[in-house]
Design a binder for these strands. Structure first.
Length: 566
RNA sequence: CGGGGUGUGGCGCAGCUUGGUAGCGCGCACGGUUCGGGACCGUGAGGCCCCCGGUUCAAAUCCGGGCACCCCGACCA
C-alpha cells in the first residue's frame, strides 16, 4: 500500500477563483483555472500549478504503466534538435515548426514530434535479431499553432507520450500496432475517460493505417460519426455512410428547364419548387492542384468534404473565383449544373441513382430530372460528401449520429518513410539490408486531463475520477468549532494517511461556506467534515463528490469507509 | 491568414459617446463582531488606464500606428 500523506491547505498555494475568468469559455478551461490547477503564461502556453500537477502526474503514471506493460521501454529525447534531421525528412518546411538558431547561427528545430530523433537513434539497430523494439518517452512538443484555443485543449507547448515501434516487416508492425491499441484502451479505461477508437485519416504522411482515440465533449474540435448498433465509429474526415433516400418526383425522359428567379441556394430552390432538398444536386467549381477547373457535385442536402475531395484530386484545391465561374459556365454560382459542361466532373456516389434538380448554367434557371449517365458523365465517382447525422451506417442497418470530440491519442502505421530518409536499416537473415518498418503512437496527457474535466464536472466544479484526483480525501475542518474539532480533524487525517490515503486538510481560517465551495470546485472524490456535530457524537460527515451521497461515520472509521467505497 | 471582440490595482467590471484631480464589487493587510454552504463593521495598502506617436492649455477618453489576449472560420504531424 502506498504511503498516505496529509497536506495542510493553510500551507499550500491553492489559488481558487470565485469568478469565471473572462477568457475561459470551454468547461475544462474555466474549471482548471478556477480550481487553481493551471495558469496561462501566454497564448497556448500553460503552467500546471501544484494542484494540477498532482493530477497530471497521476495521468502520466497510468499511461506509463500501460506502456511498460506491453514492453515499451521508456527513455528521454531532447526538445532541441538539429535542423538537419528535419531537412532530411522533408519536414523542415512545415509552418507549425518552431525554428531557432544558436549563437553561431546554426539552425535548430524545437521538436513538434520525435520521429526524426528516434529514427536517428534507431540507426544503431543493425540486425533482424534486435527487432522488434518499442521505445517511448514523455517529451515536450512545440508547435506554432495558428490558433491555440480552449485552455489545455489546443496549446503550443505540451508534453506528449510518444512511442515508436521498429519492426522488420508489415506483419511485425501489425503486432506492435495491436499492442499499442490494447495499451491505449487500457490506459483510457483506467483514466475514467469516455472515448471512441475511430478510423482516421493517414494524412499526407502516407501511412498504411491509423486510428484516433476521441473523447466526446462539447468543446471537441473534430466530429465523429458513430453507429450505436454495431459500434462503427470514424472521424467524419473518413467516415463512410449510406445517404438517406430522397423523395424523388416523377421521372422525365429528358431534362426540362424551369425558371427559378432568385433561387441561388438549395433551401430557396427547394422551397420555390416545393420539393425535397435531397432531390437536388449542387455544383461547386474548384481549382485543383494542377490549376485546372473541376466541378464537384454533391446532393443538395450534403456538404462537400474538403479532405475527401482533396484526396480525389490529389492535392489542395480552392473554390473558383466568381470571374472564373462566369467564364467557364456563362452563369454565376447558384445556377450551375453538370449538364453540357466540358470540365472534369467529380460526382458524389449518392447521385449515381435517381434524377435531380440542378442548375441550368443560366442565371435564374434550373433543370428538372437530370440523370447521371444519360444527361452528363462524371469522370470520377467518389465519396466526397461529409457523413451527417441520420445517414445509414456503412456496416449495418443502423443510423449514424455525429458528435464533437477531442483527439486524445492516435496510433499510426508509419511504414518506412523515416527509416528510409534517415537510413535506419537492418540486415535480414540473408544479409540483405532493409529499412526498418515503423509505427508512431501519441497520447497528450494534458489534453486527456482536460478532456476528463470536460466529461466529469457539474455546475459547482470538477468531479475527478478517484484514480487521478489530486487527493483521496478533502477534509474540511470547521474552524469555529474550536481546538477540539481541529484536534479531531487532525486525528482523522492521520488515520486516513496511515491507511494509505492522501488527505487535503482544509485548516484555513475561513468560513465553512468557502471551504465547501472550494472542495466542490477542486473535486476530490470524498469530502469529510469535522465540526461541532462531530464533537457531540463522535461522528463525522462523509460526502461523495460524484453522487452527492452523504453519511455519518464514526471518526475512527473514516479511513475504512473511504477506502472501502473507493 | 480572414472576420469579430477585449485591453483600466491580483480577479470581475464601470468610466470613453460629450477631454478637466481614476471608480465599483471581490480579493489583500490590520482591528473587532461572526462562523455546518462564498458573513458584517471600521481602517488601510495597491493603478506607467497595453505600448509608441499625434491633436490639445489639458488625453483612460479624440486621431494614427503597433502589440497582446479571447471568440468564429481557415489551418492542424
Amino acid at each position: 500500500m502506498s504511503r498516505g500523506t496529509v497536506s495542510r491547505a493553510s500551507q499550500l498555494f491553492l489559488p481558487t477563483l470565485r469568478e469565471d475568468p473572462a477568457e475561459a469559455e470551454a468547461a475544462s478551461h474555466r474549471l482548471l483555472l478556477r480550481s487553481g490547477c493551471v495558469r496561462q503564461v501566454g497564448a497556448g502556453l500553460y503552467a500546471f500549478m501544484p494542484l494540477g500537477w498532482r493530477v497530471y502526474k497521476k495521468v502520466e503514471q497510468i499511461i506509463r504503466e500501460e506502456m511498460d506493460a506491453i514492453g515499451c521501454q521508456e527513455m528521454l529525447m531532447p526538445l532541441l534538435t538539429p535542423a538537419e534531421l528535419w531537412q532530411r525528412t522533408g519536414r523542415y518546411e512545415i509552418n507549425e515548426l518552431f525554428k531557432v538558431s544558436d549563437r553561431a547561427d546554426r539552425p535548430f528545430v524545437l521538436a513538434m514530434t520525435h520521429e526524426e530523433t528516434i529514427t536517428f537513434l534507431a540507426r544503431e539497430i543493425s540486425s533482424y535479431r534486435q527487432l522488434p523494439q518499442l521505445w517511448y518517452h514523455f517529451g515536450l512538443k512545440e508547435r506554432d499553432e495558428p490558433r491555440p484555443r480552449a485552455g489545455l485543449l489546443r496549446v503550443r507547448e505540451f508534453v506528449m507520450k510518444d512511442s515508436y515501434s521498429f519492426d522488420r516487416d508489415q506483419e511485425g508492425l501489425d503486432v506492435s500496432y495491436a499492442k499499442h491499441a490494447a495499451a491505449y484502451r487500457a490506459a483510457f479505461d483506467r483514466l475514467g475517460l469516455r472515448y471512441y477508437e475511430v478510423e482516421s485519416d493517414t494524412g499526407m504522411m502516407g501511412g498504411t493505417g491509423a486510428h484516433e482515440y476521441m473523447a466526446p465533449c462539447e468543446a471537441g474540435e473534430n466530429d465523429v460519426a458513430r453507429c450505436e448498433a454495431c459500434g462503427y465509429a470514424a472521424n467524419v474526415e473518413v467516415a463512410a455512410s449510406r445517404p438517406t433516400a430522397p423523395d424523388l418526383p416523377q421521372r422525365r425522359n429528358a431534362p426540362e428547364e424551369v425558371e427559378t428567379p432568385g433561387a441561388t441556394t438549395i433551401e430557396s430552390l427547394a422551397a420555390l419548387l416545393g420539393i425535397d432538398p435531397r432531390a437536388t444536386a449542387k455544383a461547386m467549381p474548384v481549382v485543383g492542384p494542377d490549376g485546372q477547373l473541376v466541378l464537384g457535385l454533391v446532393r443538395g442536402d450534403h456538404r462537400l468534404h474538403e479532405l475527401k475531395l482533396r484526396k480525389v484530386l490529389g492535392g489542395d484545391f480552392r473554390p473558383a473565383h466568381p470571374e472564373e465561374i462566369r467564364e467557364a459556365f456563362g452563369a454565376d454560382g447558384g445556377s450551375l449544373g453538370p449538364v453540357g459542361v466540358s470540365l472534369p466532373i467529380v460526382a458524389d456516389e449518392a447521385l449515381r441513382e435517381g434524377w435531380y434538380v440542378t442548375g441550368a448554367n443560366r442565371n435564374g434557371w434550373h433543370l428538372l430530372g437530370v440523370e447521371a449517365g444519360r444527361d452528363f458523365e462524371p469522370g470520377t465517382w467518389a465519396d466526397i460528401r461529409e457523413a451527417q447525422a441520420g445517414d445509414g451506417c456503412p456496416r449495418c442497418d443502423g443510423t449514424l449520429s455525429v458528435e464533437p470530440a477531442i483527439e486524445v491519442g492516435n496510433i499510426f502505421k508509419l511504414g518506412t518513410r523515416y527509416s528510409e530518409a534517415l537510413g535506419a536499416t537492418y540486415l535480414d537473415e540473408a544479409g540483405v539490408e532493409r529499412p526498418i518498418v515503423m509505427g508512431s503512437y501519441g497520447i497528450g496527457p494534458g489534453r486527456t486531463l482536460a478532456a476528463i474535466v470536460e466529461q466529469c464536472h457539474d455546475d459547482r466544479g470538477i468531479v475527478w475520477p478517484a484514480q487521478i484526483a489530486p487527493y483521496d480525501v478533502h477534509l474540511v475542518e470547521i474552524g469555529a468549532a474550536g481546538p477540539e474539532a481541529a484536534e479531531l480533524a487532525d486525528l482523522v487525517a492521520r488515520e486516513c494517511a496511515a491507511a494509505g490515503l492522501s488527505v487535503l486538510l482544509d485548516d484555513r481560517d475561513q468560513r465553512p461556506g468557502e471551504k465547501f465551495a472550494d472542495a466542490d470546485l477542486i473535486g476530490c472524490p470524498v469530502r469529510v467534515t469535522v465540526g461541532k456535530k462531530a464533537l457531540e457524537d463522535g461522528q463525522v460527515d462523509v460526502k461523495r463528490r460524484a453522487s452527492g451521497e452523504e453519511a455519518r461515520v464514526p471518526a475512527s472509521q473514516v479511513a475504512a469507509a473511504v477506502s472501502g467505497a473507493a
